[in-house]
Design a protein around this nucleic acid. Structure first.
Lengths: 252, 252
DNA sequence: TCAGGAAAGTGAACGGCGTTAACCGTAAAC
DNA sequence: GTTTACGGTTAACGCCGTTCACTTTCCTGA
């Protein structure tokens, strides 16, 4: 044994089972099969009631899978950013968001699971994880990298509506926002604005409530990115970035 | 008989049954019951198989209900606009969009049915109805009223990406766009931009992927409206309109 | 006017779903 | 070495969408 695993054998076994649940569930989603307790159980060579030793309900399974799907997808968004040098902060955000869009269109069921699933009033621990999610974390970090490197103007906290001010000063998401000085918390507001826009186009495209030709070409997505660029001070980069984004879009 | 109805008795009966299907379905949605063929049938004093004389499948029922829900909701959006004089074009759009948001938050299931239901590749006739929908029609009209009255600058058609240009010149939606001169079709693009933004905030709020305090206060929604105002040349109206919107928001 | 036929609705049934309950071997814990 | 709790089973309940064979009802056309 190379490592003395602190956890008892049972704990390791149990964690492995959780992993298999997620793996089988994602396989089902991938092949277009409806996600169901019985299908997941069958995929693991078990019966459905046995799954209740691991998840409390079907919705619980969905939440679990959604969490992992989000985590895995975020890795691909991060990988897309890593095709550019670390100092190309604007390009990295553009690549990640484009990857996000392509993922959503390629795997609409997964997208729906993570981003169009009414976030249940589950346990508080889960809740924060869902309201921001791993991808939110990534985009926040990337936007802050742009701000730190290029210093675009951020709305003063005092200029925000009172509730918005409270939300950025004491965010539900305990993430990386804590390292942002209170005076600079307007950056969090900018992030929320950007996320709203990104989510809007992508959801609209995924659900098909848009001219199919525009979904195919990605023109509206690119347009949204261009219109948001001034807000984070990367307008001058867009002529360079748009071809990169379009290349990724063309790849399908 | 006051009117000589062209349709035969059976046809009238059939249409009445359709109306009852929709009525019962909406009642179920309203009281939080899951929409199901059996529940709808029971609500009309029938058995489930009988419904197959009217809808081809469960999804067909959903589509039918979604269409009517959209129609009915749009009437309330229009009514909200009618609380302002006809020449207050900016105010009317603000009232309708705010009403749209409140409706979505109050009736999230209905919202999901109409706007977060993957628009199936059904018959072409239905498809266009779903891609734009009655509400889209209303918002388009209101935005054009603003443009006609106040003449904000619209992006030249030639400046649009090629697919976007094609989409606004020959839109899938055969609606009122035909009466817009080809040179002014940039207006359609502006409309699509606005719809994307509106949809983004509202969907984000409905699905709970936002700080609950911001959903409660509507700060992000108001912010989106304010940021879009310049695009349609109503910036100077926003200080007057924001209190009106906030009043509606506070009403819950 | 009356036979024919289409339309509308019924009951039974199939397979699948989430979920519960009672039960059992086996591996860990004392 | 006994006890206990964990991880699994089977059976069953009540939903669901959907199909099929059947009856009833009412309109139509000769």
């Amino acid at each position: 044994m190379t490592t003395t695993d602190q956890r008892t054998r049972r704990e390791r076994q149990r964690e492995a089972t959780y992993d298999e649940i997620v793996r089988v569930s994602r396989a089902l989603l991938g092949e277009g099969t409806e996600l169901s307790l019985r299908a997941v159980a069958a995929g693991m060579g078990m019966t459905a009631p046995a799954l209740y030793r691991y998840v409390a309900s079907y919705q619980d399974l969905v939440d679990l899978v959604a969490l992992e799907v989000d985590r895995a997808a975020t890795e691909t968004f991060a990988a897309a950013a890593d095709t550019l040098p670390v100092d190309d902060v604007a390009g990295r955000l553009a690549m990640s968001t484009t990857e996000f869009r392509m993922w959503a269109l390629t795997a609409p069921r997964e997208f729906g699971l993570v981003f169009a699933n009414p976030v249940a009033d589950t346990s508080c621990s889960r809740r924060e994880a869902l309201t921001l999610s791993a991808s939110g974390h990534l985009f926040t970090d990337q936007m802050r990298a742009i701000w730190e490197r290029r210093g675009f103007p951020v709305p003063p906290v005092e200029s925000l509506p009172s509730t918005a001010r409270a939300a950025v000063l004491d965010p539900l998401i305990p993430a990386e926002t804590e390292s942002i000085a209170a005076a600079d918390r307007g950056l969090v507001w900018v992030y929320m604005q950007g996320w709203t826009q990104l989510y809007g186009v992508v959801a609209l495209e995924v659900f098909g409530h848009m001219d199919p030709r525009l979904i195919e070409s990605g023109d509206m997505f690119v347009d949204v990115m261009r219109r948001f660029a001034p807000t984070i001070g990367i307008t001058d980069e867009m002529d360079r970035l748009e071809p990169l984004m379009r290349a990724r879009i063309a790849r399908g």
